[in-house]
């Protein structure tokens, strides 16, 4: 029997959060953490609350903190996470908890919107697609794949302290996704908006974001690229 400890908080019933313990029969299988949550919700307690959708690691709904590390519950096998038959599941750190494992992601989304995450190009569009060489397109690899799960930003102390001012790894990765796109013409405006002491420069390069990204992306490297672009712009 797997020992599972889940962070519980219902604002209508609980004065403060607590941990609740469950025992789960995994049938000896190496289930995903999401499967374990589904078993608990179906068989033991339907009030256990979490987000989930695609269950294959592409929608980014079920970012959670499992045994101290952020990740997607649906693609985290127990063998990767469980230590000594114990699994502790908590919400993503640093954001307000709405209920149990569900956090309020407004601040996270607001930072995403702040980088104007859409292609800007006011030149008249051709009748077909805008051409882009495979080499230019390759510059977007490792950037466009972000699923907005927030595992990175909520593992970043700078984002914990200033989620309203520091764009955070996820937002900056997307910022660079457009800075790096040969079709985007708003480079100057984008950079100008990032040149305050908080948006980019709260990153101290500790790479927690790289360590947890379930898609294997590297926000720290993207932030480094943004910094270089800001330097070049000032020089």
């Amino acid at each position: 029997m797997l020992q599972v400890s889940i962070y519980r908080y219902n604002p209508e019933q609980d004065a403060e959060p607590s941990m609740e313990d469950f025992e789960v029969d995994t049938g000896g299988k190496d289930l995903m953490v999401l499967d374990v949550l589904e078993l608990i919700k179906a068989q033991q307690d339907p009030t256990v609350t979490y987000r989930r959708s695609c269950r294959e690691g592409v929608c980014g709904s079920d970012g959670l903190n499992m045994n101290g590390k952020n990740g997607l519950a649906c693609i985290t096998p127990l063998s990767d996470s469980v230590k000594g038959n114990k699994l502790v599941i908590r919400p993503l750190p640093g954001l307000p908890v709405i209920r149990d494992l569900v956090v309020d992601m407004s601040l996270f989304y607001a930072q995403y919107e702040k980088v104007q995450p859409y292609l800007q190009n006011d030149t008249p569009a051709p009748a077909i697609e805008r051409l882009q060489t495979p080499e230019d397109r390759a510059k977007l690899d490792g950037l466009y794949e972000c699923i907005l799960c927030a595992c990175c930003s909520t593992s970043c102390p700078s984002f914990w302290w200033n989620p309203d001012r520091f764009v955070g790894p996820a937002g900056l990765l997307q910022s660079y996704r457009f800075l790096a796109d040969s079709r985007d013409l708003a480079t100057e405006e984008r950079l100008a908006r990032l040149d305050d002491p908080f948006s980019v420069f709260r990153c101290h390069g500790i790479q927690n974001c790289v360590n947890v990204c379930p898609k294997g992306l590297n926000p720290t490297r993207a932030i480094g690229h943004i910094r270089s672009m800001l330097l070049k712009r000032a020089a």
Partner: peptide, 14 residues
């Protein structure tokens, strides 16, 4: 809210 007013140069890059 924390602001950038008291920062040295008010520019992150600087």
């Amino acid at each position: 809210m924390v602001t950038a007013v008291t920062s040295l140069s008010r520019s992150g890059l600087s």
